[in-house]
């Protein structure tokens, strides 16, 4: 095979891209969520994983029970003052890069419970990437948030949040 022929066949079979794009593409399409149910929203989160909505289409069906294997934490429900330190510990145990979706009004702002017992927004203790309104949000809303997050992850490159 001549050099010209080799160059021609490579040109037809090889894509060139930047490393950042490749990593972003890989990360964005395999966001493993932490299986972390708190309250009402957790039930809608389960709905998102079931057949009718099917989060597996977006590569996020692998709910990990261990924070050390998870990329994304979905704070699904109200966070009480007693739960807050635990939630932060779990977040700290997740390996970088990691993302947080605050699902529902209670996780985002405290929702209808403006009182002593609840953390008025989970963004007081962990950095949140996407907020979902609703009490609880529909499963489609969670999918939408996941898609927004995927776009962001793909744009973030090799070292997100530095």
């Amino acid at each position: 095979m001549g050099v010209e022929a080799l160059a021609e066949s490579l040109g037809q079979n090889v894509l060139t891209t930047t490393l950042a794009k490749l990593i972003g593409w890989g990360r964005g399409n395999s966001v493993w969520p932490l299986q972390f149910g708190l309250a009402c929203c957790a039930i809608e989160m389960i709905h998102t994983a079931t057949a009718s909505v099917d989060i597996a289409r977006f590569g996020s069906e692998a709910m990990r029970a261990s924070p050390r294997q998870a990329d994304m934490m979905i704070v699904s429900g109200r966070v009480s003052q007693k739960m807050a330190p635990i939630l932060r510990t779990i977040y700290d145990q997740m390996p970088e890069p990691k993302w947080v979706i605050s699902m529902g009004a209670c996780a985002s702002t405290g929702g209808v419970f403006n009182n002593y017992a609840l953390l008025q927004g989970v963004d007081k203790i962990v950095p949140v990437d996407v907020y979902i309104p609703g009490c609880p949000p529909r499963p489609e809303d969670l999918l939408n948030a996941l898609m927004i997050l995927q776009e962001r992850i793909k744009a973030q490159g090799i070292t997100p949040r530095q």
Partner: peptide, 17 residues
């Protein structure tokens, strides 16, 4: 925790809306 939340002289708490 300090205080007993359901006493009537314990404030509801939360944040200003």
């Amino acid at each position: 925790w300090v205080g007993h939340p359901l006493r009537r002289d314990y404030p509801v708490g939360g944040e200003v809306v």
